[in-house]
Amino acid sequence: MQARRQWITPHEWMIKPTQQTEWIEGQGILIWMAEVFSALGMGLYLVSIYLDNWWGALAAWFIIIFLKLPFHFFYLGRPWRFWRAIPPFTDAWKTSWIARGMFFTTVFAGLAMIQLITTYMLNHNMVSEAMIGPVTVLDYTMRLLAGLFALLTGIYCGFVMSYCKAVPFWNTGLLPIVFVVMGIADGLALILAVGLITGGVDFHAIEYASQWALILNVILIGTYLINASYTSATAEYSVMQLIRGKVARAFWIGVILLGILVPLVVSLLSIFVLPFMPLLLIFAVIAHTIGAFALKYCVLKVGIYRPIISRVPVH
């Protein structure tokens, strides 16, 4: 039985695949920003503590506290009730990824602050001889815990979306992994920027790690799209929107060209062909960051609901 036409058009979302708008249009742009800064902050923090770069860790902490959280805060319809979503004021963390995320972010903020203080004290010889041992242990413990909670802060954004059965394109366990790997690649790009300002960064090693992260990204994004194409008709429709539809320009130019190809080519050139060129690095960092914004934009934009009345063909 084929649908000929439908009317009462204000509610055509019931029978056609319809794009979600709450988290990308109008005030929803704030969610897009918050999602991007979650990934950037997580990636930069993990890379920074691995490379023992205090300035990078500080920048990551600022990104999470002063960019991610305010964007989330101002998105809320009732911002001053935000505390209701943080355990122990709610027990919804058992099922709600937003409540879990609020918890992860709050704990990360505290642990990372302690880590920043202890590392700074150790780096500037502000600890007495007798206290160096305990403070070093505390510093490493905080690095480990803050790193874990940074990872959770970055990964929960993916789980928030992948939990939604209503949006088949998001409803896959691959989404959090894509976000984390892209976030780490973002972190590698941002640490280059930090290194250009503060020094003390092995650009060659980071470029080398960055190219592998980008190649992994290409594989993951490709797998994700192929997987989505076979999941359901609505998810396939999302993929079509991404590669050929309204979002195609943002995907091909933003995610693929600027987010992956440009940084990959620059990284290969830096390693094998050209001498160290700061301007080229700055260009690659900017391109990669635009790619981070584009990826989250595309994923949010093609979040399409499956039609409620299933007897009508999807498209």
Partner: peptide
Amino acid sequence: NKCIGCRYCVIACPYQNRTFLR
């Protein structure tokens, strides 16, 4: 009185029957 207006429920409802009152 407990709703913070995060709209996660609006997104998660497969029937799209929740509305954010703006």
